[in-house]
Structures are given as structure tokens and as C-alpha cells.
Simulated assay, not measured.
Amino acid sequence: MMEVLLRAGGLIVGWNDDLSEIVALSLQVTLSAVFISCLIGLPLGAVVGAFRFPGRRVAILMMNVLMGLPPVVVGLIVYMLLSASGPMGVLGLLYTPTAMIIAQTVLVTPIIAALSRQVVEDLHEEYAEQFASLGVGPAQRVMALLWDARFSLLTVVLAGFGRAVAEVGAVMIVGGNINHVTRVMTTAIALETSRGALELALALGLVLLLIALVVNLIVMTVRGTAVRAAYA
């Protein structure tokens, strides 16, 4: 085991083009999916959290249910949509990074929407009377709540990032794990482990952990700075 770990460390230190390509594609797919999910999920969660309307409980239930979507089911659904016989087959997106971004977006958006809904709902209880007295409109109310909760929502975005960057099943189905085309860290780890190439799989796993650590440190630093500024 120690020998494998040393060889994995050597692969990271010797960093080659294959590692760079896999890591770069992983970050491209994950960050793109998280960005799109935030554009959809944050406003959606804020609207459901801030307003009372018919069907709200159903909307909350659906968001909570969709948080637990099995990745392979999402991969299958996206595959059927993008396959040659599917409604979006003409676009030719199957087995491309775009297909992987779509699959990850479907997985991450409910998580961001559900978690942001809870954050915004708790915050709205503090500001509801003030909003009513000032006659703040719906759009301005949502924007104000999202802005005020921005540092708490960083944790929500981090949860979405963690879900996306660790995804295997869905991206394997719609991406195909094609070398130099759709191979990302998680699918490469699965492939190399099945081949018995544990040093490469372990090296990619360590890089994945390092990325997660860096993202967490950035979020903690931003939140800590915000807290200190608030009490300064």
C-alpha cells in the first residue's frame, strides 16, 4: 500500500499532460454545472422561501424529493433525451462535455434550490414586516434576501459543488468516459481501479481531495472575512 501511495505521489509531482487534461475537464464540467444550477436554483429557492402561494408545499416537497435523485437515473433520463432517437438527439450532444454538464445541472439544481429555500425563508421571517412597511416589490424582495444571505448561500453553493465534482454514474452514462474527450477525474478513477492501475486512481483521488480542500478554505476565508467586517 505504501508503495502505491509513493507512486501516486510521484505521478502528482511529475504532473503530465494526461493529468492536466483530466483535471481541467473535470473543473470545466463541474464549475459550469454549478454556475447554471445557481442561476436556476438560487432564485427558485428564494421565491419559494419568501412567498406563500398555492402549491407551495408541493413545490417544497418536490425540491426535497429531487435532492435525492439517483445519479444513474438522471444519467438514463438525460441519455434518452440526447440519444439519436430522443427529442434532443438532433443536437448531437451525447458523449460530449455538454451532456455531462446537463446531467450534473439536473442533479445539483434541486440541492441548491432546496437549501437556499431554507436559508431565505429563515431570513425572510426577520425582514417580512420591514418589507411590508416599505412596500418592497417581489423582485426587489428576492434580490435583497439573496444579497443579505450571500455568505450563508456560499455553503449552499459549496454543497452543490461537492455533489457535482464527486459524480460518477450520470457522467459515465452520458459522457461515455472517452479518453481525451469526456474523461473526468471520477470516471478515470473508476476505470483505472477496474484495470488495477491503483497509483493513477489514487493520484486522481488525492487531486480531487485537494480541490475540495481548497474550495472549502476559500469559502471559510470569505465567510470569516465577512463576519469580521460585520463586527468591525
Rank of each mutant, 00 (worst) to 15 (best):
V174I: 07
F131G: 10
L198Q: 02
L146G: 04
T155C: 01
P70I: 11
A139D: 05
V171P: 00
G205L: 02
M2D: 11
L39Q: 09
E121N: 09
S152R: 09
I36E: 11
M2E: 14
V65I: 15
I189C: 01
A103K: 01
A50P: 12
L208M: 07
R195G: 00
E199T: 00
C38Y: 10
G205P: 00
R57W: 11
V156A: 05
L145R: 10
A149D: 05
V168T: 12
C38R: 12
S20E: 11
A46T: 14
T96G: 03
A144D: 07
L81P: 09
A103N: 01
L61V: 08
L115M: 14
G10C: 06
A113D: 12
I112F: 06
V78E: 08
W15I: 06
V90K: 07
A190C: 00
G176Q: 07
P138C: 04
G135E: 10
V171T: 07
L6E: 12
I36A: 14
D18E: 15
L25F: 09
A164D: 06
L217G: 05
D17C: 01
G137A: 11
A232G: 15
V165W: 01
V90I: 07
L91N: 02
M80K: 14
R195C: 00
S133A: 15
G86Y: 08
S83K: 13
V142Y: 08
H124R: 13
